[in-house]
Amino acid sequence: MRIAMINGSPKLGKSNSSILLTALEGLISNEHEIARYSLNKRPLTPEQYSELCRMDTLILAFPLYVDGIPSHLFRMLVALEEYMKSERQHDIYVYVMVNNGFYEGKQNHIAIEIIKNWCARSGLHFGQAVGQGAGEMMGLIEKIPLGHGPLKNLGNAMLALADNIQTHSSGESVLINPNFPRFAWRFMGTHSFWNATAKKNGLKRKDILRRNIN
């Protein structure tokens, strides 16, 4: 089976989407041929769009942007839809992994519906989606094995996703929270992410909280 893993994150460095794709790739048998595509540096070429039309499976991984999908990924999907309508010659299944900065995985449901509708317009089969909450934790806990600790829910969901991918099966989309207390996630996000990022950019905590009133 020819599988395309498409990283829809706009980040130039390591992203949560790339972490999820790497973890998923480790669950897929070596007998399948996997090609990676990234949208964070330059648009896909016409040759790459044609390659995607010859794949058996597309796996989209991206972060949630305003309850939807990133604009550069949206542009790619619009272009790919036209290629699929003119060049696709066999069935293609689509699987999705979405992560967001909220604690609740259910926040991803609108973005998943957007991809479902795109599949219907493009003549593709929607297989399944995994929507992960607290995505910004991934970079801090990526060394924890899937299925353990805060990644227990994610590990179980990705095992099922990998099985469906390899058999071209469909399943109910899974929207999951981390196995981590919400109050602890909020504390860690505030002190290890927001305040640390502000300090790195020469700001203080009070600068984050300051409101400009005209």
Score class of each variant (00 low, 15 high):
residue 130 V to K: 02
residue 176 I to E: 01
residue 114 I to G: 01
residue 194 W to E: 06
residue 58 L to S: 04
residue 174 V to G: 04
residue 93 Y to M: 04
residue 50 S to D: 09
residue 166 Q to C: 09
residue 48 Q to A: 09
residue 82 E to L: 15
residue 57 T to H: 04
residue 144 I to E: 05
residue 48 Q to F: 07
residue 41 K to D: 05
residue 166 Q to G: 10
residue 84 M to D: 00
residue 161 L to G: 01
residue 188 M to D: 05
residue 11 K to G: 04
residue 138 M to T: 03
residue 71 S to W: 10
residue 21 L to R: 00
residue 176 I to N: 02
residue 16 N to R: 03
residue 10 P to E: 12
residue 130 V to C: 00
residue 157 A to H: 02
residue 9 S to Y: 00
residue 115 I to R: 03
residue 103 Y to R: 04
residue 100 N to C: 07
residue 151 L to T: 03
residue 47 E to H: 01
residue 140 L to K: 15
residue 197 T to R: 15
residue 173 S to T: 08
residue 79 A to T: 14
residue 113 E to P: 05
residue 138 M to P: 00
residue 63 P to Y: 06
residue 134 A to L: 03
residue 23 A to H: 07
residue 76 M to D: 02
residue 130 V to S: 01
residue 134 A to P: 04
residue 159 L to W: 05
residue 77 L to E: 08
residue 11 K to C: 03
residue 181 P to N: 14
residue 163 D to R: 11
residue 133 G to V: 02
residue 91 D to H: 08
residue 44 L to K: 03
residue 127 G to D: 01
residue 91 D to I: 08
residue 70 P to A: 08
residue 191 H to S: 05
residue 33 E to R: 09
residue 51 E to H: 09
residue 91 D to K: 08
residue 29 S to P: 07
residue 87 E to D: 14
residue 2 R to A: 04
residue 204 K to M: 15
residue 161 L to Y: 00
residue 184 A to K: 14
residue 100 N to Y: 01
residue 21 L to G: 00
residue 44 L to D: 03
residue 17 S to N: 06
residue 101 G to A: 12
residue 65 Y to I: 10
residue 121 R to Y: 11
residue 82 E to V: 09
residue 194 W to F: 06
residue 92 I to D: 00
residue 35 A to N: 11
residue 137 M to G: 04
residue 146 L to D: 01
residue 37 Y to D: 15
residue 149 G to M: 06
residue 6 I to T: 11
residue 3 I to L: 10
residue 182 R to W: 06
residue 78 V to W: 11
residue 51 E to N: 12
residue 90 H to Y: 07
residue 21 L to V: 05
residue 132 Q to M: 15
residue 145 P to E: 12
residue 24 L to V: 10
residue 18 S to G: 09
residue 117 N to S: 13
residue 141 I to D: 05
residue 22 T to C: 08
residue 211 R to P: 08
residue 82 E to K: 13
residue 59 I to D: 00
residue 93 Y to T: 04
residue 112 I to R: 04
residue 124 L to A: 10
residue 85 K to G: 12
residue 192 S to I: 06
residue 139 G to P: 11
residue 194 W to I: 05
residue 17 S to E: 03
residue 202 G to A: 14
residue 187 F to W: 15
residue 15 S to D: 00
residue 17 S to Q: 04
residue 63 P to F: 01
residue 57 T to I: 12
residue 122 S to Q: 02
residue 136 E to P: 00
residue 120 A to D: 13
residue 15 S to L: 00
residue 38 S to K: 06
residue 189 G to E: 09
residue 172 E to N: 14
residue 34 I to A: 04
residue 34 I to H: 08
residue 199 K to V: 10
residue 207 D to M: 07
residue 54 R to F: 09
residue 93 Y to G: 00
residue 210 R to P: 07
residue 47 E to D: 14
residue 169 S to D: 15
residue 65 Y to E: 07
residue 154 L to H: 07
residue 179 N to P: 01
residue 67 D to P: 06
residue 22 T to P: 02
residue 134 A to W: 01
residue 141 I to F: 04
residue 84 M to K: 01
residue 160 A to S: 14
residue 33 E to F: 15
residue 32 H to A: 14
residue 117 N to V: 12
residue 91 D to M: 12
residue 5 M to K: 02
residue 199 K to L: 10
residue 170 S to K: 10
residue 16 N to E: 06
residue 90 H to W: 11
residue 41 K to G: 04
residue 4 A to H: 13
residue 115 I to K: 11
residue 212 N to P: 01
residue 107 Q to E: 06
residue 134 A to S: 09
residue 202 G to K: 13
residue 69 I to L: 15
